[in-house]
Nucleic acid binder design. Structure first.
Lengths: 191, 191
DNA sequence: GTCAATCTTGACGATAATGTCAAGGATACT
DNA sequence: AGTATCCTTGACATTATCGTCAAGATTGAC
């Protein structure tokens, strides 16, 4: 059939996200996307222009889900519990699938050198937003932390999450990652 | 001239390291290596077999230098000072060059999915050794830390260094990375 | 019912990278 | 000197990807 768009855009983007997540922006090819979505290469070019445009849509969908999940995990009265929830969430997120998919944001950040300004911008964006979420959580902690300290510490937390993503790629197991995260929280929040 | 090897292997590997560092194992091509070293593609194939073999040699050279520098930076009586030195070293290491080269180990780890077992092994190796170096430093700290704790904490430190490497790729400046590292050390070691 | 708009499809040309190889030629050993 | 060895070089076949496009077909508007 022709003449009218034959595919559901949301489904295509969701499937594309899966492909990008498993292969990365750089390694995923239009062929991969075509095969996974069942939409011909030519149709994808016609509908979106190029691979990166598809990626940006998929990545936006991803960051939306991710930040919402992060906000939800961090929404706990006790700061330490909130942080534990948060790390559990991201570790499961990156070790899910078989083989594990890893962290899309981190993978994309590492491709930064060969990506467009727009892609880099999105990565900075999601990291910045994550930092704010964590900063809010830390600021809400009972007591003696000043706002500036909370913000600096929030960036340390974000940095550590990126480290976990790398360690996952290096072969560390979910269990090992969780142990590191727990050790980190204890050390920073004072066990 | 022909008949006898026309190039100095150490120089070629050093140059190859530079290429891999700037482009990554995956993105660097034999053409790139040939152009940078001045050795023809065919000669490189003849001498080393394939790109990955060249990479492994270059990577070994790199990790040797890196771990030595890390050991040197950590060789300070005061644990906190040792850690500061160490982080300064790795941050300069990854922000050096223009544009900055980033961290080769981290970049390679992220390529894990598309790399051979051998490459993955080297990455795990260098991270493991780094963990041991840091563990030794932490164990030597005055006082109350048990060996098991030191080892767990060492892995947290390694993880954080990986996070810094990602943040660098995401666009954070040397100054910002140093601030995060300082905040991290203070938080963990008790400021 | 006609027609313009637009989606699908398969094909095409261009580019880039890989790995291989035969020919050519210098070296070193005997 | 003769000869085997080994390196260099350029060419080749292969494969993969990209982006484009013309032809074909259907829908929806008028």
């Amino acid at each position: 059939m022709v003449g009218v768009r034959q595919f559901n855009e949301d489904e295509v983007i969701a499937t594309a996200l899966d492909v990008f997540w498993r292969k990365g922006l750089h390694d995923a090819t239009m062929q991969d996307l075509a095969a996974a979505t069942g939409v011909q290469r030519g149709s994808l070019y016609n509908a979106y222009g190029d691979k990166e445009a598809i990626f940006l849509r998929a990545f936006d969908q991803y960051t939306g889900q991710f930040l919402e999940a992060a906000g939800h995990a961090l929404a706990h009265a006790d700061t330490t519990t909130a942080l534990r929830n948060f790390f559990d969430m991201i570790i499961v997120n990156m070790t899910d699938g078989s083989p594990a998919r890893g962290c899309l944001t981190t993978r994309t950040a590492l491709d930064a050198a060969i990506s467009s300004t727009e892609v880099r911008q999105r990565v900075q964006d999601v990291l910045g937003r994550l930092e704010q979420l964590i900063g809010k959580t830390l600021s809400a902690a009972p007591g003696r932390r000043r706002a500036a300290d909370a913000n600096r510490l929030a960036r340390v937390f974000v940095t550590f999450t990126r480290g976990l993503a790398v360690m996952e790629r290096a072969g560390y197991s979910r269990k090992q990652l969780k142990e590191s995260a727990a050790t980190f929280i204890d050390a920073v929040m004072g066990a």
